[in-house]
């Protein structure tokens, strides 16, 4: 164009592009919790299967709880990374509405958790280290799941995970919705992607309960401290895995490589431990969590009942 018109704007264009990049960076550094949650729930965000396929050389998906159902909301299977075999377990969202309906929006039923439990025991038996990926709005809340013992299924996983004699590493790739997320996340090391979130109640539900309006979700997201950065500060997360500018969906392959790097390093450290040390390590990670104080004299007026 410059040749035709004799006008050369390339300097200005470059300056503007730099400005744009800078503005983008500034924007993404200062994301609010609810904005991060929006990225974590972005329809184009790489799903668990995307990450698994990106980081494994070989991959065999395994199915079914052997008790009536193969829950598509949880995917499980064996894959190899740098020639080593691992058990992969994760909640699977769909890439479009049709897939999401099939995957039940990654909300597992008790069948899903029991399938995960079967695979954890399988991995324990064969000595495969376990890698779990968390990306769920929560365990499925319907009457059928209640009757099948949703609470029991989650509880069994929590307790069983503390007895597995293989290393466990968890990566929160999207959203970690309460007990339904924790049921596959009792790990030796827990990592969170930069824009992922973990919460005890979704900001929408929290706002509805406390302020009777789900419009207050942004406020609730702030109060609930849902971000990766807050979880790292609370020592729930052991590390934050970086995402490309604009979020994981702007470069899924790069994001997967960062995940692989974090997992490989953690596994290297964990495989050096003997079984007893490994189990103790996992127990201690959770044993220290909580905020309380003791020995404070309680106002006698309060005890006067």
């Amino acid at each position: 164009m410059a040749d035709d018109t004799g006008l050369d704007f390339s300097d200005q264009i470059e300056a503007l592009e730099n400005k744009y990049q800078q503005a983008l960076k500034d924007l993404y550094i200062r994301l609010t919790p609810i904005q991060r949650l929006t990225i974590a729930r972005h329809p184009n965000r790489p799903t668990v299967l995307d990450h698994i396929l990106n980081i494994t050389e070989k991959w065999v998906e395994l199915h079914g709880d052997r008790a009536g159902y193969d829950d598509p909301a949880i995917v499980t299977g064996i894959g190899s990374m740098n020639g080593k075999s691992y058990m992969f377990i994760g909640q699977q969202k769909g890439r479009n509405t049709k897939e999401n309906i099939f995957r039940n929006f990654a909300m597992p039923t008790p069948h899903g958790y029991r399938k995960a439990l079967r695979m954890m025991k399988y991995a324990d038996h064969h000595g495969f280290p376990i890698i779990t990926f968390v990306d769920t709005p929560g365990a499925f809340a319907d009457l059928k799941s209640e009757e099948l013992g949703q609470g029991e299924a989650i509880a069994q996983n929590l307790r069983t995970m503390f007895g597995l004699k293989v290393p466990i590493v968890t990566v929160v790739t999207g959203e970690g919705g309460s007990g339904g997320a924790l049921a596959i996340a009792c790990a030796n090391k827990l990592f969170m992607l930069e824009n992922s979130a973990f919460y005890v109640a979704s900001p929408e539900a929290c706002a509805a309960i406390l302020w009777k309006s789900s419009q207050q979700a942004p406020k609730a997201a702030e109060k609930l401290k849902i971000t990766a950065q807050e979880h790292y500060r609370l020592k729930i997360a052991d590390g934050i895995i970086p995402e490309p500018l604009g979020g994981a969906h702007s470069d899924p392959v790069w994001t997967s490589q960062q995940i692989k790097l974090a997992i490989t390093q953690a596994m290297e450290e964990l495989t050096k431990m003997d079984t007893e040390e490994l189990l103790r390590h996992r127990m201690l990670k959770f044993r220290s969590l909580g905020g309380f104080q003791e020995g404070v004299p309680v106002d006698p007026q309060k005890n006067a009942t």
């Binding site: 503390f162 007990g179 009792c186 919460y199 005890v200 609370l234 969590l289």
Partner: peptide, 20 residues
């Protein structure tokens, strides 16, 4: 809810003690 994810982690902490 008022203690956020720390409340959630108590589920894991108690289950771990029950495992032992």
């Amino acid at each position: 809810m008022q203690e956020g994810s720390l409340s959630l982690m108590q589920m894991a902490k108690i289950s771990s003690a029950l495992y032992d």
